[in-house]
Simulated scan of single mutants.
Amino acid sequence: MLWEAVSRLPAGSTVVEIGSHQGRSTVVLGHAARAVGARVVAIDAFVDGRLFGGASTRDLFERNIAKAGLDDVVELVVGYSTKLRHTWSRPFDLLYVDGKHDYWTYVDDLRWSAHMPPGSEILVHDCFSSIGVTAGTLHKVLFGNRFTYVDRSRSLARFVLRRPGPADRLRVLQQLPWFVGNVFLKVLLRLRLSKVAAWAGHQGPYDPF
């Protein structure tokens, strides 16, 4: 889905990725960008701590980008997306949001779309899987007038920068049973009820995505 979104861009376009971690998705975006003559700006704060990795994660990111031969395609910008946004002035054509998944950060990350032309695509990871991201989607997409939900591949959702109609809002509502199922499975995993989660159709020890 990431590859296809970049492939629809014209030459000279710019992709902004919020939340790069070790660069797995950045590599996909980078190779797709090279194929169409685009560039990728990867934004990540590389926060220290067990969940985020800090400086060691940045080292892994830079090593993975170099190993993929994408140093000339991918530009790394280190910092919090919520702080960088206030001084950002460069236009871009595709936004991929996979940063911090709380409601407030996600909603703020959607405001990066102010630098995009109408009709541009926005991809959001963990949509209808993360509570914070889903809450932000309901607020800004279901009840908003700026973003239109198009489709998803599992929890990777695609939006377009245009005013939604009734059918577009209905498509958002149709994803909620899947979201409720994901939350139910996550609760089971937190309670260490993996056998019950397996009975409910979940495979493996990790959260559903």
Rank of each mutant, 00 (worst) to 15 (best):
G12S: 10
I43G: 11
G144K: 05
G201H: 03
S120F: 04
G54H: 04
G119I: 11
G49L: 11
Q203N: 01
F147E: 12
K140E: 15
L173W: 14
G132C: 04
V15T: 06
S25F: 11
L142I: 00
H31S: 08
L29Q: 11
G69F: 02
D44C: 04
V172W: 12
G99L: 14
T87N: 12
A167E: 15
W88C: 12
L51G: 09
A197E: 06
A198D: 06
V16D: 04
M1C: 00
L9F: 00
H139A: 14
V15M: 06
S81Y: 12
V160W: 01
H125A: 09
D72L: 09
L84C: 09
P166K: 13
V172T: 14
V124K: 07
L138F: 10
R8M: 02
L142A: 01
A42L: 04
L94M: 07
D151I: 04
C127W: 07
L170K: 14
C127E: 07
G165H: 01
A167P: 06
A33S: 15
G53Y: 07
V28G: 07
R8L: 04
L188R: 01
K100Y: 13
L110Q: 15
S20Y: 11
F143V: 01
D102T: 09
P166G: 09
R162E: 15
L51P: 09
R154N: 12
A66D: 03
S81N: 14
A35Q: 14
A167K: 12
L2I: 07
T148C: 04
V47S: 11
S81A: 12
T14F: 05
S130C: 05
A42V: 08
S89R: 15
W112A: 11
R85A: 14
V150D: 01
Q203G: 05
R50P: 10
S120Q: 01
S81K: 10
H31Q: 13
S155C: 14
V73G: 12
F52I: 08
A135C: 14
G181I: 01
R146Y: 13
